[in-house]
Design a protein around this nucleic acid. Structure first.
Lengths: 181, 181
DNA sequence: TGACACATGTAACGGGTTACATGATTAG
DNA sequence: CTAATCATGTAACCCGTTACATGTGTCA
């Protein structure tokens, strides 16, 4: 139950149409909560039905016509409630780790090249995050909301840093291992 | 499409019944790929139907009777194929980060105590991983399969380390922020 | 007028989650 | 004999994914 709250957050930051939301979920919020346009339209329908958001009455709603939404007070209240509520962290679930575990049983042929690929992808993501940090959070500018958003970005940066380091270490280990399989 | 491969890996490590698998998915493999018993029974049925595993013919299969499975050659081959196949990393998806982003809009009342709770949980998980490392991977014992399994455990340790550090940093930031909301 | 980008949807499917159902075995 | 535990399952629901459908505006 997080997508509706991701959408409420995005709409509070700026009222938008479905497609605009989709675009914003390709960056920004999407960096830690992604969603497709199909999900977004489905969820917008529900949120409207539940009275948490409403369509801006600009023009007749029709297929092919842009339809923008804004958050209603009930929506803001629900988001505040959800934000404050205790939630357990989700257990880790990672395919790459699973594959290494499997490789210990069926042999590690083919895995190494994908580790290299992942390393490259994580390096790129890290570089992108650092760019955003430089652009959006220059030193000594600290409104409280910016502080929070910067904190979230830091998490992304530190996570990508972890992956690049771990993958580098993993590849070094592979290099030491006997020519397997 | 990872649960079947997680089960194949577990069964190759040791043939088991559904409940035994469930227990093992509460630790070990479950540390990076968790599953409930309902998922496991459903998937065991499919894997058997697909000819990747088979029930050990010990006794009549019946409700309430233990039923153990072993991996067939086709299952091993499928696992090897999947392990070697390229797969993209899943984009990050984390509720806590989303909540902080929301907190930047609706206020951060209530979030801090949950951050503290998460910090405690991650510290415990980290301690558990370190215990396992001490127990299962003593220095200078390095069969290739152990090397790989150790690598996976290292990822868990490093990830929990990241979270404890980041949460500590986040709480320090909160302490500096004006008494909000 | 035909192609293309913009914009909003529908439909089907599969995995994960939760609640519940049922049978066998063992301890008191 | 009955309560708890072991063990295997069914059913329903929601979310995320993929493929497809439909309508609008614009520009060559």
């Amino acid at each position: 139950m997080s997508l509706p709250h991701a959408i409420l957050t995005a709409l509070l930051e700026k009222p938008s149409s479905g497609l605009e939301l989709t675009r914003r979920f390709d960056k920004s919020i999407g960096y830690f909560w992604s969603a497709t346009h199909q999900q977004i339209y489905r969820e917008l329908g529900r949120l409207e039905a539940d009275g948490l958001i409403r369509a801006l009455p600009t023009q007749a709603p029709a297929r092919g016509q842009k339809k923008s939404y804004e958050v209603l007070p009930a929506g803001r209240a629900e988001l505040a409630r959800w934000t404050a509520a205790a939630q357990d962290p989700k257990p880790l679930r990672d395919t790459l780790l699973l594959r290494l575990r499997a490789a210990a049983v069926v042999g590690r042929a083919g895995v190494e090249s994908d580790l290299r690929r992942h390393l490259e992808l994580h390096r790129r993501q890290l570089a992108e995050y650092r760019e955003i940090e430089k652009r959006d959070f220059p030193p000594d500018r600290d409104a409280p909301e910016d502080r929070l958003r910067h904190l979230v970005l830091r998490a992304g940066i530190d996570l990508e840093t972890f992956w690049t380091q771990w993958l580098t270490h993993a590849l070094a280990e592979f290099a030491e291992l006997p020519e397997g399989d």
